[in-house]
Design a protein around this nucleic acid. Sequence first.
DNA 1: CTCTTATATACTCTAAGAAGCATATGCGTG
DNA 2: CACGCATATGCTTCTTAGAGTATATAAGAG
Lengths: 113, 113
Amino acid sequence: MESAFEVIAEPNRRAILSLLVYSERSVGEIERKLGMPQPAVSKHLRVLREAGFVESTVDGQRRLYRLKPEPFRQVDAWLAPFRRFWSAHVDALERHLDRMDQTTAEKAMRRKR
Amino acid sequence: MESAFEVIAEPNRRAILSLLVYSERSVGEIERKLGMPQPAVSKHLRVLREAGFVESTVDGQRRLYRLKPEPFRQVDAWLAPFRRFWSAHVDALERHLDRMDQTTAEKAMRRKR
DNA sequence: CTCTTATATACTCTAAGAAGCATATGCGTG
DNA sequence: CACGCATATGCTTCTTAGAGTATATAAGAG
């Protein structure tokens, strides 16, 4: 489970991360919110912690988990070169839709005449 | 291998995708550039194709593969909510580095006097 | 039509990861 | 100090993915 990519390949882990975006959470809170068994939560949190996605602090008998930024940046960095590419496609799609609109508009014009 | 996240969890597949950013490639080109056995390349391309990351066209006895945008967008969409969070950290880092620079600058100033 | 090049597929083997359950550890309270 | 809640860890089992190797398909060249 070296890489950040393998870590976020698991749906339950992505769910945990998405939950932690709002605020830090105890294990029990995660367990209840996601409806998954406690050992599963702890195991996934361990993986997330070892990969640097989260850190925890002790609060009495609870542990509070919160996000850490680094691995997200790694993923984002890998994604960056593709962004240029896919936004070009958005542009192409928009141009296409614009042409569609134009065509529609022209048809409407013709109908109006 | 349903999800885009599982697909990009595999390092060889990420390498293939990164290679295709520049231009479309034949299987043989990928094989040589990445130094991996041909069946491996074909298998990974199959996974990528089925997940919508790439598409291929026939060119004589070659197949040319190129990127498709949708799955990248999915990944980016999942990442988006975290971006706000981690850029806050970037800001903090930048402020930190700014202070460092300032300190360095002050030292330089002192040296100059 | 045969030989060669390009690519895909089938099959076997191995390993790793996730689920499920049981149990350990550790702190808090009466 | 005994009990109960919160969390972590250990163990077993099941499944799946990837590597490696061999082979199939299909197109071009002579």
